[in-house]
């Protein structure tokens, strides 16, 4: 699993490093902590500040490992190198898995999306500031990344851990990777799992029901007893709005996902912005 942790030098990004640290303990993922300098602020001092922040976030992730079983090289970062692609990069080889730091220069959202495309990462984890309407100080980066990315995106908000992970499934495209991602979050937060089937005028389509049944069996085999709930498509937005008050909502938003019917890009942006809890968009 490859994870990009998109950060800036504000406190909300520190929170995301803690969350990724917990996730990394279970997943042993290859992690890239990425910061972006805008051309306007590309001064030596700004660069140094961002470098220090990235090193700090790396330390937070490494400190999540309390035992000796850390898959990353724990040596201190000694120097930054310029790559041919124009990135400034710091990596300490030798570990079983990679934990590298990358600084790009340009528009934050575009650079994160471009790096994701080139590195073929599975997940982008990005934080956002609740007070700024889920934005970074440099703009609506989390929303742009969440809606435009080709991989899954976890938008982390600084709230207490969710009580439930609520999965609104696109029942035609549930991949093993998605299920594992959900399992990780359930474990990470010690949350309950709720599987939501979307019905059409109160009747649950046969393929949706079959998929729910398969998932129930899958999770039962993992000794998890998920809650099951049926939601009429027409009431989906109000359901999501209610659930996101306390719970982490996971939505499938792939190009052929039927959830796109209820959550077009614009609505996803406002959902991410309004949701008091973290949001996972699965692709």
């Amino acid at each position: 699993m490859k994870i990009i942790v998109a950060v800036d030098s504000n406190p909300y990004s520190g929170h995301v490093a803690h969350e990724v640290g917990k996730l990394a303990v279970n997943t042993w993922a290859d992690i890239t902590i990425m910061g972006v300098l805008s051309p306007l602020e590309d001064t030596a001092k700004a660069r140094e500040t961002l470098e220090q922040q990235l090193v700090k976030y790396r330390r937070i992730i490494l400190d999540s490992y309390t035992s000796d079983s850390c898959p990353y090289n724990k040596d201190a970062v000694e120097q930054w190198e310029q790559t041919e692609d124009g990135y400034s990069m710091a990596a300490t080889g030798g570990g079983l898995k990679q934990l590298q730091l990358v600084i790009a220069k340009g528009a934050a959202a575009q650079e994160i999306l471009l790096y994701n495309q080139n590195s073929e990462s599975d997940l982008i984890v990005i934080s956002c500031d609740k007070d700024l309407g889920c934005s970074w100080q440099s703009g609506k980066v989390p929303m742009k990344v969440a809606t435009e990315a080709t991989c899954s995106v976890l938008v982390v908000k600084e709230t207490k851990d969710p009580e439930q992970v609520v999965c609104c499934l696109d029942h035609d495209h549930v991949t093993q990777y998605s299920l594992e991602m959900i399992n990780q979050l359930v474990t990470l937060y010690g949350a309950e799992l709720k599987i939501v089937g979307i019905s059409d005028s109160d009747s649950l389509k046969e393929n949706i029901e079959q998929k729910m049944q398969q998932l129930l069996e899958y999770y039962n085999n993992l000794k998890l007893t998920p809650w099951l709930e049926v939601v009429d498509g027409a009431t989906m937005p109000s359901f999501i709005s209610k659930e996101s008050q306390k719970n982490l909502v996971a939505l499938w938003v792939g190009p052929t996902s039927f959830l796109n019917r209820f959550f077009p890009k614009k609505r996803i942006s406002s959902f991410i912005s309004d949701s008091p809890s973290s949001v996972l968009l699965l692709r």
Binding site: L204, L228, E229, V231, D232, F239
Partner: peptide, 9 residues
């Protein structure tokens, strides 16, 4: 009777 978001059922 699967749990439902709506009380109608």
């Amino acid at each position: 009777l699967l749990s439902s978001f709506s009380s109608k059922i």
